[in-house]
Design a protein around this nucleic acid. Structure first.
Lengths: 261, 261
DNA sequence: GATCGAATTCCGCAACACGAAACCCTTGTT
DNA sequence: AACAAGGGTTTCGTGTTGCGGAATTCGATC
């Protein structure tokens, strides 16, 4: 292959396999090895290997009966996850701006990752003190208000699995006792919002409320973070109530029943 | 890498690149090279190459400002296309069954591919004569009623580009003259359905009507195919009218305005 | 301006992806 | 029922090219 003066860092097997993936995906329905091979002018053996690899990774689906390939679950799942995140971000943005103005503190939006939370949006209060998170950052579940809000609304089995993982100590105040954490989570489930005081970052605190999807599953959480000194108990309670209210509004837009908690 | 006794046909670079793709996609927002590298335990250089390749293919998006990666347009586009095809198939199925019973002939559903049409569903009449298409097959646009129905409703520029491609001769009756084809397409645009007589397969004919999306773009077409001998002109006209009606109904479900034709 | 972390680039090596051909199915044909 | 044909799998020897450590550049931050 002459390989045009393209990016020298392109790994050819990967590139060609992606072409195969694209062809199969765009085909609209099952397609056979030979057809892919002919269409892309890639030798049968090589095409075969790519189709196997793509199927093994779940990006394609291999129908053993007809020996043909279709788009796999992995692609659909990723697409769904992405659409869901985009939707949450779009829904949350106006409410976040509102919250930021109301309390003049930074407002964060995070989704549940695998054992962590990932910040997908944040609106900073333009006060002098710099805050901690950046979009794309991951933080542990158990040391953040965002994570605790999510943990409290997770199905029992998944919450247990989550807490079985080693709990990292972020600061001297990070909760590490299983009992203590579970007690707090029950509290969070009752009040509808979570609080964290210097457990993730020294001198900083955070209040978070969960965003639930149509199955009542906590897919994301909304939070307000501030220096400890600027957030007395009374204000924190007020912020918690507002967050719970606003998060519930977003949940409703995702199809969640505002029903029993 | 120990490589468990997995499928021996798995191409490692491809597999590892897919893992990178998945990680970035599921992350929910921009993620940097080093983070991916650490998370997946793949050396920085290699990870870099995969990220470059995935971005070059459009599966990821490289934000040059922050030097971070997100899900790219290719993934979203594929997902959208897939969802659209699934939707069309689901919407069309009941109508297809109905049509099949009404005329006791095979009913076909195809989407527009790149220069071809691809059968995505068909319901066979259980008559003795075997029909020609199978799900997943591609046929030329200009020699099928399905393709002509789509061509007639394509934006002018794209139709011209389409007809500039070499036109394959499927049978002695296949239309090859540009003038003749364009005359027929204008006719199709007026009547709302296309007819093909032995132009794609000797002894077989087909009648097709386009399915339009919310932009009025012909994404698919519905057709009835039969042996030439079984479909006299009068019946064909009746079938054309029914197809037009049913296809319009499906188009309406896709958000197409039933307005001007 | 100095320092640090992160992203690129370089380079030599050998792992491993490649593809021709052989093999083995299943499907349709006479 | 045997045969042919087409498509999928497997084998195997070759040399391409992907790999990753280390050096370098880039761009923040103090």
């Amino acid at each position: 292959m002459p390989k045009t003066s393209e990016n020298p860092y392109v790994v050819q097997p990967v590139m060609k396999a992606l072409k195969v993936l694209e062809l199969v995906a765009r085909h609209g329905h099952e397609i056979a090895l030979t057809a892919v091979s002919k269409e892309l002018r890639i030798p049968k053996t090589t095409t075969f290997r790519y189709l196997q690899t793509l199927s093994a990774a779940g990006f394609l689906d291999h129908n053993r009966a007809t020996d043909r390939y279709t788009l796999g679950p992995q692609m659909r799942s990723i697409a769904r996850a992405d659409a869901s995140v985009s939707k949450i971000r779009a829904l949350a943005r106006p409410a976040m701006t509102e919250l930021m103005h109301e309390f003049n503190e930074t407002v964060n939006l995070a989704v549940k990752g695998n054992g962590t939370i990932v910040y997908i949006d944040l609106i900073e209060a333009n006060r002098s003190l710099r805050m901690q998170a950046r979009i794309g950052d991951s933080h542990p579940m158990h040391s953040t208000a965002l994570g605790k809000a999510i943990l409290a609304f997770l199905p029992e089995a998944e919450r247990q699995r989550q807490l079985d993982l080693p709990l990292t100590e972020r600061t001297g105040r990070t909760l590490l006792e299983r009992e203590e954490i579970e007690r707090q989570l029950r509290q969070v489930a009752r009040t509808g919002y979570a609080t964290e005081m210097g457990e993730n970052e020294d001198g900083a605190m955070c209040i978070g409320a969960p965003i639930l999807d149509e199955h009542g599953y906590p897919v994301a959480a909304l939070s307000i973070s501030a220096p400890l000194m600027r957030m007395p108990h009374s204000l924190a309670a007020k912020a918690g109530a507002r967050l719970r209210e606003i998060a519930a509004g977003i949940s409703a837009h995702l199809g969640s029943q505002p029903a029993a908690v």
